[in-house]
């Protein structure tokens, strides 16, 4: 099964953004550096997230990015849909209509799709951050405090 790197880096960057924006907007460059994500790649990701209204950019000398909503109201499902285009399992809809295809769709593919959406929609950015803290081992925090 394939996930794109956009989702992976997008979620990682949003966690970083959320943790570091307590004192104001965060620059894209600083996130790219901390998370070791190529800056122009992160620009593309943030451009999609901004258009979708999940983050907003603040202009000016102290400018940068902020989450549009608090982390506990930012749905991971929305982030993934924005970055992946959709959460559908197939690029194109299966065309065939044999019994086997019908049964696989009902039993397996639809169920997988539901499970994916259910889980992604049940998680917020804050859940990911809490989970990250629970793990304990994070040199990231040591750097910042």
């Amino acid at each position: 099964m394939k996930f794109s790197a956009r989702s992976r880096y997008g979620l990682r960057a949003l966690i970083d953004l959320s943790l570091n924006s307590l004192n104001g907007p965060v620059t894209l460059t600083s996130i790219a550096e901390r998370q070791d994500i190529p800056e122009n790649y992160l620009e593309q990701i943030f451009s999609s997230l901004r258009k979708a209204g999940l983050i907003r950019s603040i202009k000016g000398a102290q400018g940068g990015y902020q989450l549009s909503l608090p982390a506990e109201k930012t749905s991971v499902g929305d982030v993934l849909r924005t970055l992946e285009g959709s959460l559908d399992l197939f690029d194109e809809n299966p065309t065939g209509n044999s019994h086997i295809q019908q049964c696989l769709k009902g039993l397996l593919w639809d169920r997988m799709n539901r499970a994916l959406e259910e889980y992604a929609d049940s998680q917020t950015l804050q859940d990911l951050i809490d989970d990250f803290y629970r793990r304990g081992t994070n040199d990231f925090l040591m750097y910042d405090i």
């Binding site: 992976r8 979620l11 998370q35 889980y119 990911l128 951050i129 989970d131 990250f132």
Partner: peptide, 11 residues
């Protein structure tokens, strides 16, 4: 060691 790893495990 990405900070979002827990999400993928949960998924």
């Amino acid at each position: 060691d990405g900070q979002e790893r827990g999400f993928w495990e949960g998924l």
